[in-house]
């Protein structure tokens, strides 16, 4: 029968998982940005609209990363 961990263990596991996930995000995000940002910024739009589009895509991407990390921290570490 599965037994729940104490709150202290849950917090510790979640923090460690969160840090590990952030490290992964830190590793994968810059190459993704450096690959796609110039492509987006070169879209045939009037200057500087392509930069604004790239800004929004970048911010949405980082927000999604944050949400994914939180979701999986809760799902896999908070137990």
């Amino acid at each position: 029968m599965r037994r729940d961990n104490s709150i202290g263990v849950k917090i510790l596991k979640s923090i460690l998982f969160f840090i590990a996930a952030v490290v992964v995000a830190v590793i994968i995000t810059p190459p993704i940005f450096s690959l796609f940002a110039p492509i987006i910024r070169a879209l045939p739009m009037e200057t500087p609209n392509s930069f604004i589009v790239a800004d929004y895509i970048g911010m949405i991407f980082m927000a999604l990363e944050g949400l994914i990390i939180l979701k999986y921290t809760k799902k896999w570490a908070w137990r």
Binding site: V26, P30, F33, G58
Partner: peptide
């Protein structure tokens, strides 16, 4: 755009 070290 955002270096790995900076982001960390």
């Amino acid at each position: 755009d955002l270096s790995r070290r900076d982001m960390l």
